[in-house]
Amino acid sequence: MSVSVQISDFDAGAEIAALRRDPSVGAIVTFVGTVRDINEGDSVSSLTLEHYPGMTEKALADIVGQARARWSLNAVRVIHRVGTLRALDQIVFVGVAGRHRGECFAACEFIMDYLKTQAPFWKKEATGRGERWVEARDSDDEAVRRWERG
């Protein structure tokens, strides 16, 4: 299964090892997103991720499909956690394996850029001033437009 949405943590090393099993692979690019302890100037004690079960997996699989159509890749792995997380916790893993690094770097960034704007996850953070929903950033939409312009 190339896409997982889960409460439990993941082992990035084990995921990389799994991507390395194919001897035609010459490059593996990974991204790990983690929980920051500060956002918008306030300290964040925890982050709760909500998602849309049923749509989330489909949206992620669709993004992976778009990346695979755009670049020649050997394997792609996406893991996104949901539930309550704390500073330093891992949120998301994207691993891309291919023959050469260029397409792997590009595909990994493409997948993250689309995930940030297309996959139905929402973050609510607990700060010293109470709980609040994290606002979407215009820069994330701009990152996607960059790919659409080619």
Binding site: H80, I91, V92, K116, T117, P120, F121, V134
Partner: peptide, 10 residues
């Protein structure tokens, strides 16, 4: 049909 604010995952 689902309605929601702009997404903020990742």
């Amino acid at each position: 049909v689902a309605f929601f604010p702009p997404v903020t995952g990742g």
